[in-house]
Design a protein around this nucleic acid. Sequence first.
DNA 1: AATACTCGCAACCGCAACACG
DNA 2: CCGTGTTGCGGTTGCGAGTAT
Length: 367
Amino acid sequence: MPMVLGKCVLWRCCVHLAFAPIISSLRSLSMGRAPCCSKVGLHRGPWTPREDTLLTNYIQTHGEGNWRSLPKKAGLLRCGKSCRLRWMNYLRPDIKRGNISSDEDDLIIRLHILLGNRWSLIAGRLPGRTDNEIKNYWNTHLSKKLRLQGIDPDTHKPLPHGSGEANSRKKKNKKGKLSSASMTNNNNNGQINKKQEQALTKKRNKDSRDADEKKNRHTIHLPKPVRVKSFSMLPRNESFVSMTSAASDRVINNNVGDDDNNNNNNGTGGASFFIGDDECGDYKMMMMRGEDGSDDLDLGFDHHQYQLCAGDEDDFISGEHNLDKLYNEYLQVLKTTNEVADNNAATTDDDHELLDQLDSFAESFLV
DNA sequence: AATACTCGCAACCGCAACACG
DNA sequence: CCGTGTTGCGGTTGCGAGTAT
């Protein structure tokens, strides 16, 4: 209902409102969902350079927001939603175009293990990348890559025997039917025929070459400066604001495992997170302290104690050479999480609890 | 050369959460 | 607390380019 009414207002902004089909559409409001851009005379499909210019100029002058009224003010025959999407995914000046590096590959996969299909959160860890881009990249590259490695991209667990890339590609063609290739695969009961195998080998070799190439331009990205919130996902608006406001440093005191999660930790003493960038634009460190005031990050587990960042609180890690260190520490935590998950077969309730805590811990500084 | 097919990605859709009066 | 409008997210679609037949 809100959407319906919202679009009703949107329609008033439409210069083609007088057209008969639109009146018909208006009448149909009471019968179902209102269309967004279609049937109301607004442009759809690919954006033209002129539209891009209009949108960019308007936002540079007036800023983001008020997406619904923006198209009218900017002189665009687009719906606000379309404008927002275009800006967020394509026109924003801080967007990084180009190939996704092998480091980003790795990070995306690891973040996906932790976060699942929460593309916006994953994208939040990759400066300049959009959720749409990450999502597309996952669907077109990484899920295939994992399948080729015998890993189920959804669960990140080994695929059942015989269910590899070739067998899992039941891609639909444009008519919504299974393609002949995939049908062939089905008929062969998962067997890859010679040509397909050659194609896969060719692709593997290419991927391998690409990976080698990318290794030579090794870069590591720290998380964007975000507001930290304990064990819960940020409201969307906050996360957006925090992701885009790298102007000032923030020091956030975060009680790891407080509230309901507290019973699994050694008291309420928190870990302090510092996530931000310095005046030069370089990211500083993330500081975590144990509840006893030590520099260890004490999660309160009997057999899992991670020392993420040692040193005094003032001893910020900064500079490129330290990014590797922090990244490796970060990966180490994720790795341990994965190992625990891998051994999950004979888990006890305590182990489940531990896994939950690890996930929560990881999330607490991902968010 | 023509056609069929695959792939990558921008854009769209529907929904849910959030903001606000 | 409720109703309404706005924003953001994730899934999906479909176009166009590239590749195979």
